[in-house]
């Protein structure tokens, strides 16, 4: 009897894990806000991933993405924009601003130092 229950629980768990991790879970994009009329800023919380996952900057306006790292994991201690040559350490519990070159439109993917967590900055 207990074997049958175990089997059912296992199947349900596997189903849940597949749905939770592999299913599509879209997140809304967040537009950067203008600060002092001269530059735009958007905050990203680093805690088990990047929230919001996708941020949008306006082209041609100096832009900053501010990362606030709450997560203690060393997996998330760095943020790497491979197209932009940025590899910055994010001290835990602090806000680190990263300047993004907004002169060209495009999508810039970023990831943690080990490429396990991903986020995106869109310039348009």
């Amino acid at each position: 009897m207990i074997q049958v229950i175990t089997l059912i629980v296992a199947v349900v768990l596997i189903g849940f894990i597949s749905w939770w991790f592999f299913g599509k879970h879209e997140q809304a994009e967040v537009q950067a806000e203008m600060k002092d009329g001269a530059m735009q800023k958007v905050e990203v919380v680093v805690d088990g991933g990047y929230t919001p996952n996708t941020v949008v900057l306006k082209q041609g306006v100096p832009g900053e993405v501010v990362f606030e790292r709450k997560d203690p994991s060393s997996c998330l201690e760095k943020v790497v924009f491979s197209d932009l040559g940025i590899n910055q350490t994010l001290p835990q519990g602090e806000k680190s601003a990263i300047k993004i070159d907004t002169s060209k439109a495009g999508e810039f993917d970023y990831a943690c130092g080990m490429n396990m967590f991903h986020g995106k900055v869109i310039v348009k």
Binding site: F21, G49, T51, K70, D71, S73, C75, L76, M116
Partner: peptide, 16 residues
């Protein structure tokens, strides 16, 4: 455990 939970909430999983 904390970062594993935080990651889980975002549909992420890692070494933690």
């Amino acid at each position: 455990w904390q970062s594993a939970w935080a990651a889980f909430k975002h549909h992420n999983a890692n070494m933690d």
